[in-house]
Design a protein around this nucleic acid. Structure first.
Length: 503
DNA sequence: ATGTAC
């Protein structure tokens, strides 16, 4: 530990080394909290309750090694967005607030073989066609509208259901975590109310920060990995960012209420009721895990249906088959999930995972790794990285704001040691949605993006554009720089928006 | 994020 400290209005962070800051363990904390950030990012992170929240999470039973806040961290419901918490799956707990309301919110990137020059001049036609054919905005309306029986199948089988029903090809499954089907999904643990909310939202973007964006690749930082990912300069790609809509939201809410009713004792030990957690091994922990896994499958199907519909829109606009445009899924990442994973951790004299200073040996342990606004970033060679990318590391997709651009990274070789195999998930908000609406006017933001950057934005609501104005976000270049410098997610390529549709 | 609160 260096002697450098950072004073964040009452919370003192000690610098472990460059970009690694620690809030030491004290009182009822079960581990230290760590923040991975530059000083410039820390100046922004300290402005809301992020640091207090990441410290609070260390009170969760079974918190292993340390709680981690990513460089894009900001305040969330109980657990900060940009937070990673690895909790002992045998003696710890699982916490819906540490997954997030939007279960399996995530992003997927689809390649094409089109170049920016081939698309230029057709931006408006394309953005109109996408907007007309991809359901977006609050409430109902999806690519598929079905009964609860179909929802049950989607919850159980994920993208395998989409394949059987003509909304996917085999190759799509091979380029998604868990091949688009999470094991341990239990549709019976998802409430009727959640299924009712989901049944007419299958294949819909939703609102808020969710979007579909046509982008062009502007930079390749690593030619070897870029080639493995099928990316080159000037190539057109499509990025889809959305989650599990009302179904995931309802599921989170259902289980938060159940935990409050059944595990008040544990809740009383926690500094924030929003961290409500079910003890590992309890019926409720098993039920939530089954329901969450089912909602994860629903979100994967959601992104799959939007992607497949996008292929059909491109076919009409460019008058060619999608196969001839090589519209293939590069990868799909989930950035709001918990998952049972095996990690090598320090174990104390009682055989349980402990923080580094107390460890007597290192052993493999099964953990509930909570990634809320954080992306899995497994390095080269990890058995869970799909075959196509096993030699280079998993693709990590980081959306920036509408005007800033986006990154593709690959899982870095330090991620397993530093972050339980994780990195950032985006630029991270700088201000609340309410504040954003006071500072920006949607129409002005749209005009500016089109006139100055040739970015064509079409949205259901002007308020949403204001809430998502580029000025509302942290600097994604700085977030990614920190990830790259730490070796948890390495820069591969950068993309820039061409057309954007949103709710 | 979200039938923007139950």
């Amino acid at each position: 530990m260096s002697n450098v400290t950072f004073d964040a209005d009452g919370i003192t962070l000690e610098q472990v080394r460059e970009y690694v800051w620690e809030i030491p363990q004290e009182g009822d904390m079960r581990a230290p909290a760590r923040v991975l950030a530059s000083e410039a990012l820390l100046e922004e992170i300290k402005e809301d309750k992020t640091l207090e929240q990441i410290t609070n999470t260390t009170h969760l039973p079974g918190m292993t090694t340390n709680a981690i806040c990513m460089p894009d961290g900001h305040q969330g419901y109980g657990f900060p967005v940009g937070g990673v918490g690895a909790l002992d799956a045998e003696h710890g707990c699982i916490s819906p607030g540490a997954v997030g309301y939007d279960i399996n919110c995530g992003v997927r990137m689809m390649r094409t073989n089109l170049t920016y020059d081939e698309l230029k001049g057709q931006e408006e036609e394309l953005v109109d066609a996408l907007f007309a054919n991809i359901p977006s905005g609050l409430g109902g309306g999806g690519v598929v509208e079905a009964g609860v029986d179909t929802v049950d199948e989607i919850l159980a089988r994920g993208v395998d259901w989409a394949l059987e029903n003509g909304h996917a090809v085999e190759d799509d499954l091979l380029h998604c975590e868990d091949e688009g089907m999470r094991e341990g999904a239990d549709p019976e643990k998802v409430s009727q109310k959640a299924k009712d909310r989901g049944k007419n939202q299958i294949g819909s973007l939703g609102s808020g920060n969710h979007f579909l964006e046509v982008q062009r690749v502007t930079d390749i930082f690593d030619t070897e990995v870029g080639e493995a990912f099928g990316l080159e300069e000037d190539q057109i790609v499509v990025l889809i960012h959305c989650g599990s809509r009302g179904l995931g939201h309802q599921t989170c809410n259902d289980y938060l209420r159940k935990i409050e009713q059944q595990h008040q004792g544990l809740l009383d030990q926690l500094p924030d009721k929003e961290l409500a957690a079910a003890p590992a091994g309890s019926q409720l922990a098993e039920d939530y895990y089954g329901a969450m896994n089912a909602a994860i499958n629903f979100a994967w199907v959601n992104r799959q249906l939007i992607m497949h519909r996008t292929r059909q829109v491109f076919e009409r606009v460019f008058d060619r088959s999608w196969e001839s445009m090589e519209m293939e899924l590069l990868y799909d990442v989930a950035h709001n999930i918990a998952k049972k994973e095996t990690h090598t951790v320090g174990v104390g004299p009682e055989g349980r995972p402990v923080r580094d200073g107390e460890a007597v040996e290192r052993e493999e342990r099964e953990l509930y790794v909570h990634r809320k606004g954080a992306t899995r970033a497994f390095p080269a060679g990890h058995p869970e990285v799909p075959k196509a990318y096993r030699d280079v590391g998993q693709p990590v997709i980081i959306p920036g704001s509408m005007g800033a651009g986006n990154y593709v990274l690959r899982g870095g070789e330090n991620s397993m040691d530093l972050t339980f195999g994780s990195t950032a998930h985006g630029a991270g908000r700088l201000m609340s949605r309410t504040q954003a609406k006071n500072e920006f006017w949607g129409g002005d933001v749209q005009d500016e993006l089109e006139e100055q950057e040739q970015i064509y934005v079409k949205a259901q609501s002007g308020a949403t554009v204001a809430e998502e104005a580029p000025g509302v976000y942290k600097d994604v270049d700085e977030v990614v720089r920190v990830s790259d410098e730490l070796g948890i997610g390495d820069k591969v390529a950068r993309t820039f928006p061409v057309c954007n549709i949103k709710g």
